[in-house]
């Protein structure tokens, strides 16, 4: 690793520390909820290690625990992760090396490391992205593992109010994602579409159908 890259990585790791605390809390919650949603201990940890994207993982666990179909759970999670296409494109010019190395480095580009590596004006520091990304990945996988163990020790999720934890989490994530009037309108339309369909289609399908609201983006 070059001197400059190493310096950037250390700066990125330091900058991401407070964010990592929040991510740890999030991973802990995921471990507990995924176990209650019927995910095995190993599957839960592997999910965090490969997908490495909180909202998609929570969406899949939520649809499955509500009794939704396999396809609905998968499609909902994949749709939530499509944002990594434009995010990956934005950092593409900064990631160097043979394609297998770029593919590996790209796995560390998640919402938070992307934000920390952004130098402004669409330019990115690869070292900062990598440093922040490695800290985040270790935190996410580690806290998921602890949550899995804790989830096995806890009892009935309904008695503990854990069924209210899913919507609360999605609400907290939503608050960070809504930008501008168009985002608010799309969110409202998505909610209305999903609620209107609940009684008429299989569980999980309302979430996927709600994605139609993002066609609002076709308007200038």
């Amino acid at each position: 690793m070059g001197e400059e890259l190493a310096r950037g990585a250390r700066a990125g790791a330091r900058a991401v520390a407070p964010v990592a605390l929040a991510v740890a809390a999030f991973g802990l919650t995921f471990g507990v909820l995924a176990r209650n949603a019927g995910f095995g201990a190993v599957a839960t940890v592997v999910f965090s290690a490969t997908t490495f994207a909180g909202s998609a993982q929570f969406a899949a666990a939520s649809v499955l625990s509500a009794g939704g179909t396999l396809v609905a759970a998968i499609v909902a999670a994949i749709l939530l992760n499509t944002r990594y296409l434009p995010i990956g494109l934005s950092v593409a010019p900064t990631l160097r090396g043979p394609s297998w190395r770029r593919a590996l480095k790209a796995q560390l580009v998640v919402d938070e490391s992307w934000a920390i590596g952004h130098l402004g004006g669409g330019r990115f520091d690869p070292g900062r992205i990598m440093g922040a990304g490695i800290v985040l990945w270790c935190t996410w996988v580690g806290s998921t593992t602890i949550g899995v163990v804790a989830g096995d020790l806890l009892g009935d999720p309904r008695r503990l109010g854990l069924d209210a934890a899913f919507p609360a989490l999605f609400l907290a994530l939503l608050a960070g994602q809504v930008e501008g009037r168009r985002g608010l309108l799309a969110a409202a339309c998505g909610a209305v579409i999903a609620l209107a369909l609940v009684s008429f289609v299989p569980v999980g399908v309302p979430i996927v159908a709600a994605a139609a609201a993002c066609l609002l983006g076709l308007r200038r």
Partner: peptide, 30 residues
Amino acid sequence: GLVTRVVALLAPTLLAALVVVSTFATGREL
């Protein structure tokens, strides 16, 4: 640009749907 604008709205749309469904739905009942 068109694709980027649509993809940008996916997260708020799906998260809002997840909020209301996991709050009000139990199986296929409200």
